[in-house]
Write a protein that binds this DNA or RNA. Structure first.
Lengths: 194, 194
DNA sequence: ACAAATATAAACCAATTGGTATATTTTGAC
DNA sequence: GTCAAAATATACCAATTGGTTTATATTTGT
């Protein structure tokens, strides 16, 4: 085996970081909390991520973006059309919010807002992750017959509604806001894909 | 005069806090930064806000919410209909983002996401402020002839799109995202108010 | 099996965090 | 003008922050 334990350590660090970034964001996430939640000593953290907090967060955010994109792909394979896919995606987050007492909203949002003008590397990681998400959704919309430019704009619009809905739901501690947004955006999508 | 300097001190503290909450959020805002930006000694801060950081942030957030609601009212008085009002509101934030190199997005969003599961008092302040905003917009939509329930839902949908657009614009450091969302939501509003 | 590369552990650091204590100054009503 | 209340200023605190160092242990290819 080639450094199995090492790979596991890295995975544990990223997993703990992802959870903390999602629930509390970048600034409130202490590295002491990361090492505690992952049962990894601090020395190992700096061995795997010499760039410290910024590198750890950047790598985690990029992996998170990849996971989000993947889950859209999986979801769309099990749905009859893009409208159903988006509906399911909203429902997944509604469940997450309720299951975790509103700790688990969008894995990127809080960090993206905080780091936009704080650290270049994390900001770029967030941007890349959102772009990945946007492109996957846009490609699904194109498959529904929308022209390229329309699809790209509809993708942005849908993600904006999604993020805004998540924000309001978390701010109010009430998933009602997310259901309202879900119903309206799916209605809109239904009308534009003939 | 009755304690003019005291009132000014309080105003300075709230103004500095508002700026920091808007650009960096709650966790990254240090009280040492607040007292520096406001030229107020730390002792005065705890005199005016015995509850410390939480109280200072809560009061600031509530005042910010009031200001946002007021600006919608002013804007709608100078617009021919709700569609124009919303368009102008988006444009204002587009300008703000560009003018401040993406520091000044939504004055509530970052703090709302961070504090949703961190502090009860700040979370409630954010919720109250968003609700104030939502109700003002809903009442404007009702004046355009929409039935109560439809207006309330359209208000939520509009604010979600707005917040999501701001989030994406900040995450990407690109106001393009906000213009796309603006165009689509105003188009939508145009169709529902006959 | 063994040396070289890699990873872990734990003690340690300066700087900053939110928050206090207390002495001094300023204020306004009488 | 006096005096009590209110506000300000400064020095201070323990706790935590991100980050470093160094010694030890573990894996690895050969």
């Amino acid at each position: 085996m080639t450094y199995n334990k090492s790979i596991q350590t890295r995975k544990n660090l990223i997993k703990a970081t992802a959870g903390l970034l999602r629930s509390k964001g970048y600034s409130a996430m202490g590295l002491s909390e990361v090492v505690k939640n992952s049962s990894v000593p601090k020395g190992s953290l700096y061995h795997h991520f010499p760039g410290g907090k910024e590198e750890l967060a950047s790598v985690t955010i990029l992996e998170t973006g990849e996971n989000m994109a993947q889950s859209v792909m999986v979801l769309s394979k099990n749905s009859k059309d893009i409208v159903e896919t988006v509906g399911h995606y909203f429902n997944h987050y509604i469940e997450q919010l309720e299951k975790t007492e509103f700790q688990n909203g969008c894995p990127l949002a809080t960090t993206a807002l905080e780091t936009a003008t704080l650290t270049d590397t994390v900001q770029k990681a967030c941007s890349t992750s959102f772009l990945r998400f946007e492109d996957i959704l846009a490609s699904q919309l194109k498959e529904s017959g929308l022209p390229d430019e329309i699809a790209q704009k509809a993708s942005i619009y849908t993600i904006a509604a999604f993020e805004g809905g998540l924000l309001l739901a978390k701010a109010h501690n009430d998933t009602h806001y997310l259901t309202v947004v879900r119903d309206q955006i799916t209605q809109h999508l239904k009308t534009i894909i003939q």
